[in-house]
Simulated scan of single mutants.
Amino acid sequence: MTTHHSDHSQTPRLRVLLGEVTAMGPGKAMLLEAIRDKGSISAAARSIGMSYRRAWDLVETMNQSFRQPMVETAKGGPGGGGANVTEFGERVLARYREMEARATAAIQTDLEDFSRFLVDTENAD
């Protein structure tokens, strides 16, 4: 018998659109945090299981979608390249995470109720 879903870790996936482009979403936020932690786009991509090409495309999209760059890069060479999240990027990321937390809190009861429709992953086998 299947019971209600006991894991209440369901969270909304907040996406901020600019026209048809996602200016900021969960993947971009995770990538920004990884760039901040790792200091490069390639290391950040590896750490979150994303291809370098995909990570680079997301960084370009963010840099084109916002009024100021979100990520600055340095060319490679003997000392290696690198990337860092700009102060502006940090402000945008913090605001996004705040919005995400407020959205989750606002619908927490609904998420718990909705979880009753889902398969209980502990008893799914």
Rank of each mutant, 00 (worst) to 15 (best):
M50Y: 09
A44K: 08
S9F: 06
A74R: 14
V59L: 05
S6F: 10
G19V: 07
D113P: 00
D120M: 09
A124Y: 10
N84I: 10
P69S: 09
L118F: 12
L31Q: 05
G25M: 05
R15E: 12
R54L: 14
E98W: 10
P78I: 14
Q64R: 15
E122I: 15
L32N: 01
S40I: 03
K75M: 11
A55V: 02
T3N: 09
T61G: 05
Q108V: 07
T2P: 13
A34L: 04
A55P: 11
V92C: 00
M1R: 08
A44P: 01
G77I: 04
E122G: 01
Q68W: 10
Q108K: 15
I107G: 05
G89Y: 05
L118N: 06
T109S: 14
A55H: 00
G27S: 13
N63C: 02
T86L: 01
L58Y: 13
A74H: 08
L58A: 07
A83M: 01
M1W: 07
R91Q: 12
L14I: 12
E60F: 04
A83E: 02
D120S: 01
G19W: 11
V85F: 03
V21L: 09
G49S: 02
S9N: 14
F88P: 02
G82Q: 02
G49I: 00
V16R: 03
R67C: 01
G19Y: 10
V85M: 03
G89T: 02
L18Y: 06
E33Y: 00
A55G: 06
T11W: 00
A74I: 13
G81P: 01
R15V: 15
E87D: 12
M99W: 10
A23M: 04
L18N: 14
I35P: 12
G80F: 07
L118W: 08
Y52R: 11
E122D: 13
V71E: 01
R102F: 06
T2W: 08
T104R: 12
H8C: 04
Y52E: 11
A106F: 05
E122R: 13
S6N: 07
A105V: 05
Q68M: 13
V92T: 01
L118K: 10
G79C: 02
N63F: 03
A44G: 00
G82H: 05
A43H: 10
N123K: 15
R116K: 13
R102K: 13
R36G: 08
Q10D: 07
